[in-house]
Design a protein around this nucleic acid. Structure first.
Lengths: 137, 137
DNA sequence: ATGGAATCTGTAGTTTGCTATGGTTGTTCC
DNA sequence: GGAACAACCATAGCAAACTACAGATTCCAT
């Protein structure tokens, strides 16, 4: 029923150092131990790790996942509002990033498209970047 | 005609430590010095810094900007192909990221939309994340 | 019982792009 | 000439998310 770190890591498809890292980051609860101090995990821990992987794929940071994981285990159903809040905020972030990326994609595509039309030895990509002084970080 | 680091930084709207950092990163050429060792800059350096800022805004990394800056100063016109290559590669990267973000936006929006329909104490956002096991990093 | 694999711990290193610290000089202006 | 300010340099720190040591201990199969 229980497995070692290595087995857990393999089962979840993750580096075993990462498992210990997640533990330190409070993404995983402190596991049981053998008398000698080796960690022991259950299938619930595999689930936990899979949840973390999925949440990462949806764009949440480890810090956010720590909160999500707590909601997931502690207050089933109770904390839906908090989860929704996190979800909405993340969605808003993603939409901002999307808009930024769309803007710079358009700029860059424009510079590249303009280039072959200039035969006078003046690179339009560089020229375009040079004019792109509407910066953010 | 020439100015100190502080003046350059102010003129380009950038932290002066960042100027020295860019120098270390070979984004700026080694500047002239006073007899006492203080850096001296010209307006061309202000331009260089502005170029760096713009290139950052278009999504290039400092490493890439190092190459762009070299093209910009060394081979005017000569290196258009190389610049195009960098530009196209960056555009491709941006488009990949755009698609990824669009995918996760859709997922997240779906989870959030599904939530109010479930009154049985089962959070659909968490449930959605749980099922989103088609991960990338 | 023994030896090799797996784990243990803590700490340090990786990447990217800065920002801050601190103790020592250089520069400026009255 | 001396206060006040600017700049010098090297090193350290931050954030995020790991990854990799090193040296000691434990586990398990033979």
């Amino acid at each position: 029923m229980s497995m070692t770190v290595g087995a857990l890591a393999k089962k979840a498809g993750i580096n075993l150092e990462t498992v210990r890292f997640y533990e330190k980051q409070k993404l995983l609860p402190d596991p049981e131990r053998t008398s000698g101090g080796h960690r022991l995990y259950s299938d619930a821990d595999v689930e936990r790790l899979r949840f973390i992987q999925s949440a990462k794929a949806v764009g949440f940071t480890l810090k956010e996942i720590r909160a999500l994981a707590r909601f997931r285990e502690e207050d089933p159903g109770e904390s839906c509002d908090d989860v929704m809040e996190l979800g909405r905020r993340k969605l808003a972030e993603i939409e901002i990033k999307l808009r930024e990326l769309q803007t710079i994609r358009k700029m860059l595509a424009g510079f590249i498209a303009a280039c072959p039309e200039d035969d006078l030895g003046h690179c339009q990509v560089l020229a375009g970047i040079e004019k792109a002084t509407g910066a953010k970080s």
